[in-house]
Amino acid sequence: MTASPVNTILLRTAGTNCDRELALAFEMAGAHVETVHINHLIANPGQLADYQILGLPGGFSYGDDIASGRILANQLVHHLGDALQQWIADGKMILGICNGFQVLVKAGLLPGPMPQLSPGDTFPATLTDNTNGRFVDRWIRVRSTSAHCPWMGPETCLDLPIAHGEGRFMVRDQSVLETLRANDQIAFSYVDAAGNVALNAPENPNGSVDSIAGLCDVTGRVLGMMPHPERFISSYLHPTWTRQKPPPAPAGLQLFKNAVAYIRQNMAVMV
C-alpha cells in the first residue's frame, strides 16, 4: 500500500528567503512541496484545498518595513482570512518560522483565535525588537514544552539557530501568559545547556517574556517559532559537528517528520 502524498504549500512573497531550505526539509520528511507566490494564491484561493500543511518561511517579507511580518499579515487577513480559518477548522497544519512566526502573530493566528480588525479589538501578543536592538545570528537550545502540539513531542531539547532582529515575544498583559500556559500553547522555550528555562541572554537571545521561543494555537496544529529547524536538517549544519564523532543527529528534521506522520494518520478525517 502506498501512502497518499502529504501536500505542503509554502507561501512566498517579496522578501521571503528561507523557502528553498524549508521546501527541502519537508521533502526530506516525505512531503510533496509546492511554493506559491501570494499574488497567485490570492487570485486562486481554491488551490488551498489540495494541501494539508501550510508553511510560512523565514525572510524579510516586504523588508520588515513598518514592522516585521506586518504587511504580509495584513494581506493574509484581508484576502485569505476566511480561507485560513477554514483551513484550521479542517484539521490542517500551519508552520511559521522566524518571519513566518511574526506573520502568524501579527495576523492574530497565534496565539489565536484571529481577532477582527475593528476599533477596540486588541491583539494579545507581538514579536518586536530584540532587547539589544540588534539582529543576532547564533545557535541556541530550546526545549519543546507543549504536550499537545503534534509538531514536536514534549520535553525534547534541540540545538537550533536563530537569526532575527525582531524575535522578542511580548504579551499585552499577564493574563495572556496565564491563558497560554493554561491552554498548553507554549511550544518551545529557550533553555540552558542543562535544559532549564533560561531567562537571560545569551541563552534567551532576544528578551522574550518567559523565554518563549515558539507558540502553538489551542489545536496545537498551528505552530510558530523563531528558531530555524529547517537549518538543522543535516549533521554538518550543527556548529560543533567537527568536535563530535559521530556528528550529531539533525534534530530539526524531526519536526517535519512529525508533521508528515501526523497528517498521514489524520488524513482520512480531513475534508
Partner: peptide, 17 residues
C-alpha cells in the same frame, strides 16, 4: 553575529567556531 551567516541552510563551517 549581526549577519545572517546561515540563511540558505548551507553554512557547514561557520565564521565563529
Amino acid at each position: 553575529r549581526q549577519y545572517d551567516h546561515e540563511v540558505q541552510g548551507a553554512t557547514v563551517i561557520k565564521p565563529l567556531t
